[in-house]
């Protein structure tokens, strides 16, 4: 499914909302549509379940991966590789997978000058089931913190409400209502609803979901041994 409209697409959100899984799916889908795709892992905080863990899967699809040199190694070393500058000059589609919250997203602020006058989109990923007692107000607050440190403005919201393998269409619909309310509070469009691929036939006829594309995804990021 084609979601990305700009050449540079930045995926941000509260940590654990599914940014990496969405970025991996989008990169793969765009590559399979014949585009030249680069994925940039900008997470220098979280050492587990990160884009660069899936380097082989991505490279097999012809996707270029730019990641912190010490990412996913034993070294908790928050340094950036020089190659990250190249990400802003790549041809084709470039997807940036930011770290979670304002702390993880801070890295992008370092590069915000590279995006002046550039056609980019910044998509804010929301999983209504990520936090106990999540509210649209709190969700807006997290985005404001991310915008402050990235020095960029979000362009759209993505409903990625899910409970991984336990997700039902009802979860996606309830999530939609939550994200819609958040979108209205902040004045941004709800651009897409992320749907685990096997749920797509059931959710397509939903009378609740009225805005945003349906983006089918596979669960790529996560432990491989789940029974």
């Amino acid at each position: 499914m084609k979601l990305i409209s700009g050449r540079l697409s930045i995926i941000c959100g509260h940590y654990g909302t599914g940014k990496t899984n969405l970025a991996l799916n989008l990169a793969r889908d765009h590559a399979r549509m014949g585009e030249k795709v680069t994925i940039v892992d900008m997470d220098i905080v979280n050492p587990y379940f990160r884009t660069s863990d899936y380097r082989k899967i991505l490279e097999d699809e012809g996707i270029e991966v730019i990641a912190p040199v010490f990412g996913a190694t034993n070294l908790d070393l928050p340094s950036l590789p020089a190659s990250m500058y190249m990400a802003f000059e790549k041809e084709g589609t470039v997807i940036f997978d930011l770290g979670g919250d304002d702390v993880g997203a801070t890295v992008m602020g370092r590069f915000s000058d590279r995006l002046v006058g550039v056609d980019y989109e910044m998509l804010y990923v929301i999983n209504r089931y990520r936090d106990l007692g999540a509210t649209p107000d709190g969700t807006v607050q997290i985005l404001k913190e991310i915008e402050a440190v990235t020095r960029l403005k979000a362009t759209g919201l993505i409903n990625n409400s899910n409970l991984m393998y336990e997700t039902t269409t009802e979860h996606i619909e309830k999530g939609y209502e939550f994200v819609k309310e958040t979108a209205e509070l902040i004045g941004l469009p709800l651009v897409a609803n992320v749907v685990r691929r096997d749920l797509l036939p059931d959710i397509s006829g939903s009378s609740v979901i009225r805005t945003g594309e349906m983006i089918p995804v596979d669960i790529i990021a996560g432990p491989s041994f789940l029974d």
Binding site: G16, N127, Y129, R130, D131, L163, E166
Partner: peptide, 14 residues
């Protein structure tokens, strides 16, 4: 109660 998606570390804390 309604289910939420949490990291194991967060579940321990909560």
């Amino acid at each position: 109660a309604e289910k939420v998606l949490m990291k194991g570390n967060e579940a321990l804390a909560e």
